[in-house]
Amino acid sequence: MGKNNDSQYQDSTSSHLRLLVSNGGKSSNIRSTLDAVVTTTQNYSKNSVENQISRPELDAKLETIEARMDGRLARIEDRFASMEKTMEQINQSLEKQRNTPWKAASATIAVMLATIIAVGALAFTAFDSGRETAQVAADAKADIAASAAEVKEMIKSLQQAQQAPAQAAPQPATQQEK
């Protein structure tokens, strides 16, 4: 408020002096102008005395302002502390996540290797199975061929057995020959 009153005082004094100069410096005008300047000055001093603050009031206001500022600073410090905690939690979770891709990659590689080994084992098993199947088929073919040869021999022997009794048995005599 002191600055505002100063500027009002300067403005009114300047306007009174301009009025004095514009009237050509006539004595009646000078007197009225000087009276106006004195009145303005008195009003200024009266206002500044009323606006003055006593020392205890000033101390009380400063303490109030200081208490407010301390509260604000405490809130700001609390916010920074909570931000630090949050950043620490974020760093911890990021640290955990940094290892996750490596774990996933190693698990994927392990699964791929196990699949390759399983396919290889199945291939060898299938090859061995095919070789064994071929051996079994060859054995079966040989058994069938042997059985077929035995059956042919049996058929031959049966045919020979049927032809041999017919040739060995005499024909019965007919009644005319008797």
Rank of each mutant, 00 (worst) to 15 (best):
T86V: 03
E66V: 05
E88A: 14
Q163L: 13
V111W: 04
M1R: 12
S45T: 11
V136A: 10
S7R: 14
V21C: 03
I65W: 00
R131F: 02
L122C: 10
K3N: 13
Q163S: 14
T133E: 09
N43F: 01
M112Q: 11
S45A: 08
S82N: 13
S27A: 13
K103T: 06
I90M: 05
S54D: 09
N23L: 04
A114C: 05
V111H: 04
H16Y: 11
L20E: 00
Q97S: 02
R18Q: 13
Q176S: 14
M87G: 04
V21D: 09
F124T: 08
Q160Y: 07
A134N: 11
V119R: 03
D143R: 15
K85R: 15
T41K: 14
Q162L: 11
G25F: 06
A138Y: 02
I116Q: 05
N5M: 10
A137F: 00
Q10T: 08
T115Q: 08
N47W: 01
K3A: 11
T100S: 08
A168F: 02
A74T: 03
D35L: 08
D35A: 10
E150N: 11
E132G: 06
S14Y: 06
L34F: 08
A168V: 04
I117H: 03
V111M: 06
Q42S: 12
Q52N: 12
A114M: 06
K96Q: 07
E84I: 00
R72E: 10
A74H: 09
Q160R: 13
N47Y: 03
T115G: 11
L20I: 05
K141D: 05
A107F: 03
P170D: 05
V37I: 15
Q175I: 05
D143M: 11
Q8P: 00
D35T: 08
I90E: 02
A105S: 10
T86Q: 13
L58E: 08
R131K: 14
A140L: 15
K85D: 14
G130C: 05
V119P: 01
S32M: 03
G24E: 02
I144Y: 07
I30C: 07
D6L: 10
V49Q: 11
E57R: 12
Q159Y: 07
E132C: 00
Q159T: 07
N4D: 12
E77W: 03
R31N: 08
G2Q: 13
T13S: 08
S157F: 05
N29Y: 03
K103C: 01
A81N: 12
L20G: 01
T174G: 04
K96T: 04
T108G: 09
K3V: 12
F127E: 07
A146G: 01
T115K: 06
T33Q: 03
S22R: 14
Q176E: 15
S129D: 04
E66Q: 14
T39A: 15
A105H: 05
D6P: 00
A110I: 00
A137Y: 00
D35G: 09
T33D: 02
M154S: 14
K156C: 01
A105G: 04
Q135T: 14
T33R: 01
Q8K: 11
R75G: 02
A60F: 03
D6R: 04
I65N: 07
N51M: 12
A107R: 05
E50T: 12
R79N: 13
I53T: 12
H16Q: 07
